[in-house]
């Protein structure tokens, strides 16, 4: 599904150049649930941004579902993001004046799905994350866990090939974190490919594979025995 070869990325910081990713080689198969771990500054968020086409690489190859991702125009990148990727952010990034339902429907709006169909589909995904009764609430009326579940529903609504989660539990307490991870596991069980960036060990162990990043290179890449989050909920 995802294939990365010799990926480099550096940032200019004044006169200095900060080499963040120093040759990443990495492959993700269909249906995997991968945790990308590392301390802050290890380059894990940068990697995720490049995977998410939010940022471009300096050199290297990136292929997503057989499509080479290189030199995209803004418009093309937007199209690919919409078609291929679903994002889950640490701070949820819901649009605060839109109801839960409208937030979930937003990617479908950019896919030009007709309004009625959009609403129906969004409602299905809200039901899936257990928030149907809250469909018409604004984000400010939801708890942190609920917000993240709305964000997950939004990421899923466009039926992307890959879900990218950047510290999805970073702003949540442990009980809510496990609830969210339980949901992510369920979605993975249905065959969706998911990448989770985290620096929490217990969250990482709820995935099926852990990739360890340190100073811009992969130092460890292992398959693990998945810990089911459901048992803690």
């Amino acid at each position: 599904m995802i294939e990365i070869k010799d990926l480099h990325k550096s940032y200019k910081m004044g006169s200095n150049s900060l080499h963040v990713l120093k040759g990443i080689n990495f492959k993700v198969e269909d249906g995997e649930l991968v945790a990308i771990m590392g301390s802050s500054g290890s380059g894990k968020s940068t990697l995720l941004n490049i995977l998410g086409m939010l940022d471009g690489a300096d050199s290297g190859e990136y292929t997503l579902d057989g499509v080479p991702i290189k030199n995209l125009s803004e418009t093309k990148a937007a199209q690919y993001r919409n078609k291929f990727l679903g994002f889950i952010f640490q701070s949820f990034n819901l649009i605060n004046y839109k109801s839960a339902l409208e937030n979930v429907a937003l990617p479908l709006y950019y896919q030009k799905v007709p309004r009625k169909e959009r609403q129906e589909k969004a409602m299905q995904y809200l039901e899936k994350v257990g928030l149907k009764p809250w469909a018409h609430h604004l984000p400010s009326e939801l708890s942190g866990g609920q917000k993240q579940r709305v964000a997950i529903a939004r990421a899923m609504a466009a039926e992307p090939k890959v879900l990218l989660a950047d510290e999805p539990t970073g702003a949540l307490d442990s009980k809510t974190s496990y609830e969210v991870m339980d949901l992510i596991q369920q979605i993975n069980d249905e065959g969706n490919t998911i990448l989770v960036v985290t620096h929490e060990e217990d969250i990482a162990h709820m995935c099926k594979r852990i990739v360890h990043l340190k100073d811009g290179v992969i130092v460890e890449d292992k398959k693990i025995e998945q810990v089911r989050a459901g048992q803690y909920v």
Binding site: E74, T75, R81
Partner: peptide, 16 residues
């Protein structure tokens, strides 16, 4: 800015 960033991440084209 943030909202526009979210929209772009969700697939909003610059023209939109």
């Amino acid at each position: 800015t943030k909202e526009i960033g979210v929209r772009k991440a969700l697939g909003a084209r610059p023209r939109q």
